[in-house]
Every structure is written in C-alpha cells, then in structure tokens.
Nucleic acid binder design. Structure first.
Length: 580
RNA sequence: CGGGGCGUAGCGCAGCCUGGUAGCGCAUCUGGUUUGGGACCAGAGGGUCGGGUGUUCGAAUCACCCCGCCCCGACCA
C-alpha cells in the first residue's frame, strides 16, 4: 500500500534528453519529468505525478468556487446534436465541434463547452424567480478539434476545464455574479502564486456582451495583451482600443504616380520617400457568416498599422473574415498589390485614424500606380469609419492618455456575461415576481485546468527542471536515502512514516542509485523541500533538510518532523503575504 | 488548408547521397567494483528501419502512393 510512495515503485518515467518534438518549456519539462505522454495529436495521458498536481489545482478551484456560492455538478461529455441545433450553434461552432452519429443514426458531438446542456437542464427545472440566482459548475474533460494543436498541454484538443454557468432573474443580478466570479478568479490565480492579469476580451464564438480573460504572463503565450502603464486598462489586442499620434500633412492635389512593382506599404513608403504612416493600407476581405456571408469588403488602416480582423468582423456583423482571393479583388475593381479605397465596388471601411486625414498615399486600383494627396473627407465619399486597427506598443491609452505596452499571455480563464444569448433560444424561462414569464439571463465562467498546469510550469522552472509552488507540488517533500546501509534505510523508513503521519505529502527515494541521480530527478520533477538521510549525518543523529536548489542544513533526527512542518508552514504564510 | 522539416530499439541520433550482414550514446537486464551531485568494468536483451506498392539478384537506402508527427503561416495588397 505505502509502497506506492516509494520512488522505486512509483511510475515516474523521466527522460534524460528533451524529446525532439517538444518546443516550449512546459511541454519539454512535463514530458521529461514524467508527467505526461502524448497519445495522439493534442491528446495526452496524465501520469501519476500530473494527476497529483491536477488534483491540487482542482482543490483550490473547488474551494474558491464553493466559497463563492457555486455548486458542483457533472454533465456528460457526449451531447445530442439537437441541443446544438436549438441554440443555432451546430453550424456556427464549425469544425472544432467533433460530430458523429451513434448506432441509431442520432447526431451527437463531443462537448467543447456546455451552455446547451446546462440550459436544457435548467430550463426543465426552473419555474420561479425564487430559485434564482444559481451557479452550477463542473470540472471535466472537453474536446475541441483544434486546427492546430500545439505546445503540449497549452493547446490540446482534449483538455480539462472548470466551467461554471450562472442564471439570473435580471441584468443587475448577473452583473453582481460576474463581479463575484471575477473576484473568485483573482483569488484562485493569486493562490497559485502566478503573475497574471485580467484583461477585457472579445466574446468570440461563445457570444454575449461583456467578457474578461485571465492571462498568465509568459513569453511563450499565444495571446497579445495591451495594457496601460499608467492606469488599470488592459485588454486583449483583439479588442484593445487606443489612440495613436498621426502625422499632420497639408492638403494636396490628388495625383497618380508610377510605382512599378512596389506593393507593400513599406516598399511604397520607401520608394516615394514618405512616412509610412501616410500610406493607406487597403485589405480586401470576404465576410464569413452572418447576414452578409460571402460579401467582399475593403478595410483601410494606416501603412504602419495592421487590420485587426476580429474588429473588422464585428464592424460588418460577421462571424469572421478571410482575406479575399485575387479574383475577388478584381471583382470589386481592385488590382492586387495596388488596391486603394477610391472607386471600389464594395463597402469601404476605414479606421478612425484615417478620419479627416490628408496628404495620404494609397493604391490607385491600377497596376504599378499609387495616388498621392488623398484626403479621406474629400475623396472617399462612401467611406465608413470604425475602429479597425490593432493596438500597438507606444499608442496612448484611450482612458488616461498613458503609454500602452504589449505583453504575451497564456489565457487560463475567461468570464462572460452572456445575457440571453442561450437562454432565449434554449427557452430558459421562469415566472417573475409579477407572475409573468421571463427569460433568464446567464453568465459563464471557465478555467483551463490542464492548461493552467502548463502555464504554471512556464513561470516556475529553471535549468534543472520544474519548481512547483508548494501548494501545487505533487509531493511537498522528497526524502532521499543516501547510501544503502541498513541504518540509512531504516531511519529513512521511520522518518517517512512520521512525515506521512503528520499529514505531509512525501515521496521517499529508496532506489539504489547514486546521490547525484536522486538529486537531479527531484530537481527535475520539482519537489520543493528535500530531506536527506545519509550515513555521514546519521552517525551524529542528524539528517539534512533544504529547499530545492538551496543549501541544506543539519537537523537532529528527532526534530525532523517538527522542523519540516514549521518550514512548510512558514513558507505557506510567506506566499500568502507576498502573493507569490 | 498551404509551406517547410522529420519518421531507424524506451529517449537522443548516425547510416540513405553512391542499394549488399542495422549501428552509436543514454536507458534496461545480469555479474562485479563503487556510493554526498546524472560512476566504472564485463556481458546480455531489445528493431515489421512509419505503412504499402514498384524497380532490382538484392531496398533502411531508389521511385510512387498513403499514414503519422513537429514547426511556420493562415495575414499587411
């Protein structure tokens, strides 16, 4: 029974070399240290060490969710297609939704998220406003058939998620719960000792009105977040708004100039020796989804800006946008490489930064030609202005005028105020205080538990391996028997049982390995505290204790349990105080 | 979906160009010597060379097809 906490019997398949197919640190270390193994693209086995960490992460999440008043339930992973038809997401969710038919030919899918199922459940049981609000959550495997799974646990197809769903009688109540969940998330990530940041976010395919993402700051993050150096403003670049300084140029005559072969904004600016910010970059897109599905539109930003496609999609009421083909560009009167906003046969959307701008350079919609002296107010009569550009470092904050900086982040949580996006089609109705039928409002709140494990490794590692925060380490203490004399093994076993008896998670390395091997392995798998039992000290009744990669000190055998306990406790206290 | 790379023992790799007995390091097993920071000696086991078809007397090696994996991109007109 206890044999399982002996290293010699515990399943920890460590690797000396980094597996060749791992790129990011968390992926390499989780593989090397024996936490995960790949089953197929984006799908992993969680080995015993990983399960211990996941259980600890989940325990903190549960603790805070329960404390915030949510109740745990468990929904199925296999969901009936008809629920997705009802919410109108069967088509909308796209190929990420893995669909299949059961033996009776019923359309089914693997749950990528559970709005449909929870709404179906609640709609059957909800009758009165007196039952509201309620917040239900689960911790469960999700499946999303990602275009390109990568970076190990960071973007898997199957992953572990905590997802919570709240239902309310009115908007104010939803707003209060949104805040409640927001605060709970801050407490959760603080307890993990993470450098994180909540940011305003786009609502994406989930939909709804208001949303924040929680990002763990890490260079390997897939998301770009913009934040103000002076105030609290922070947002995903998919949504971030900011101001930019524009160059003032006098009004000029419209002129066509030859620009043979030069097409990119950089090249044109160089060729004509003008500031790249005076270029108008005109991108042609095809609308995907929504009322205007398939329609071609042009989007203009300044030459040194980029079109933020999610903003563009919102501006035209689309699900997404895709770059148009050359043929489609020709269709609207454009010439690939020389597209400009004038005389196009499509809608022309311009970024706010172009409003009232003069002296601009744009494509002439003729091969090898651009126009100069463009004045958006004067020359583009049918232009519509939107926020279309992607925020850049050095922009000024729209709220306070401070300096905007960009950072990379790993999205580990997101909260949404959904309103009635799902409750309306799914008919989540109740009788209100006035006796009338009313549609419930809804919020949903997710945490990527398995991604969180990887994100923590991204922040907590060094050349030797993983250095777990004490609260999440698979074992708090690594007990190393040094040398194989009977006395060492006996003393180790006794200490092992005493530590266990004191409620401490301890892994006893009873292997017949040389000391270096044991130290390296413990540093790789990331156990925070080491206790070393060796002949050298044992003769004087001493063992050693020290934090990972730090100096060890001698402790009398008789005191080791109490010293370890106080050491662990003071470390926990410290981490609460410093939030680290 | 497009581009690039890769697939040979559990892990990391060589061999392929120029066809001819499948190799190295680590790991594993046995024995011995070691034992305070990834030991040493001796021996051993482990391979459908991703799969299929073809060319050839003969294919890990050449050709074609398929599969899988990784990276980049999905973008600046």
């Amino acid at each position: 029974m206890l044999a399982t906490m002996r290293y010699s019997k515990f399943f920890i398949p460590t690797l000396r070399d980094d597996p060749a197919d791992a790129e990011v640190i968390s992926h390499k270390l989780l593989l090397r240290a024996g936490y995960i193994r790949r089953v197929t693209s984006g799908v992993y086995d969680y080995l015993p060490l990983a399960v211990r960490v996941l259980r600890k992460i989940e325990a903190v999440v549960r603790d805070e969710m329960n404390r915030a008043g949510a109740q745990e339930l468990q929904m199925p992973m296999v969901q009936p297609g008809e629920l997705w038809e009802k919410s109108e997401r069967m088509e909308k969710y796209g190929p990420e939704l893995l669909r299949f038919k059961d033996r009776h030919g019923h359309e089914s899918c693997l749950g990528p998220t559970h709005e449909e199922v929870i709404c179906d459940l609640v709609s059957r049981e909800l009758r009165s406003y007196k039952q509201l609000p309620m917040n239900l959550y689960q911790i469960q495997n999700k499946f999303r058939d990602e275009i390109r799974p990568r970076f190990g646990l960071m973007r898997g197809r199957e992953f572990i998620m905590k997802d919570a769903y709240s239902f309310h009688a009115d908007e104010d109540c939803l707003a209060a719960e949104y805040k409640n969940m927001f605060d709970a998330y801050c407490r959760i990530f603080t307890r993990f000792g993470l450098k994180f940041r909540p940011v305003e976010a786009d609502t994406g395919s989930i939909g709804g009105s208001d949303s924040h993402e929680f990002h763990v700051l890490a260079d390997s993050g897939e998301d770009l977040i913009a934040h103000c150096g002076a105030c609290e403003y922070a947002a995903n670049v998919e949504k971030a708004v900011s101001n930019r300084q524009t160059v003032a140029v006098e009004q000029a005559e419209l002129k066509m100039v030859d620009t043979p072969v030069v097409t990119s904004a950089e090249d044109v600016a160089g060729f004509l020796s003008v500031d790249i910010a005076l270029l108008v970059k005109t991108m042609v897109y095809r609308i995907i989804g929504g009322e205007h599905d398939g329609v071609i539109v042009a989007a203009c930003v300044r030459g040194d800006d980029q079109v933020q496609e999610i903003k563009l999609a919102h501006a035209v009421g689309a699900d997404s946008v895709e770059l148009a083909t050359d043929a489609e560009i020709t269709e609207i009167g454009g010439v690939t490489g020389f597209v400009g906003p004038q005389n196009l046969l499509s809608r022309v959307l311009l970024d706010h930064s172009l409003q009232g701008a003069t002296g601009l350079v744009a494509g002439a919609n003729r091969k090898d030609a651009h126009i100069t002296g463009l004045d958006t107010a004067r020359d583009i009569t049918s232009g519509e202005f939107f926020d279309l550009r992607q925020t850049r470092a050095g922009d000024t904050c729209a709220k306070c005028g401070g300096n905007i900086e960009l950072s990379r982040g790993i999205e580990v949580g997101q909260v949404f105020a959904l309103g009635t996006r799902y409750t309306e089609p799914m008919e989540v109705l109740f009788q209100n205080q006035q006796g009338q039928r009313s549609v419930a409002t809804m919020g949903c709140y997710g945490i990527g538990v398995s991604r969180l494990m990887a994100a923590i490794v991204e922040q907590c590692n060094d050349a030797a391996g993983i250095s777990w925060p004490l609260t999440l380490a698979p074992f708090s203490v690594g007990l190393i028997s040094m040398g194989k004399s009977g006395a060492v093994l006996e003393a180790s076993e006794a200490i092992y049982h005493q530590l266990k008896g004191a409620g401490i998670d301890v892994l006893w390395d009873d292997r017949k390995e040389r000391p270096g091997v044991k130290f390296k392995d413990f540093e790789l798998i990331g156990l925070p505290l080491q206790v070393v039992v060796g002949d050298r000290g044992l003769n004087d009744g001493q063992v050693e204790m020290g934090w990972r990669k730090n100096e060890r000190r001698s402790v009398p055998v008789a005191d080791i349990v109490s010293v370890v306990l106080s050491e662990l406790q003071s470390s926990e206290l410290q981490s609460v105080e410093t939030g680290n």
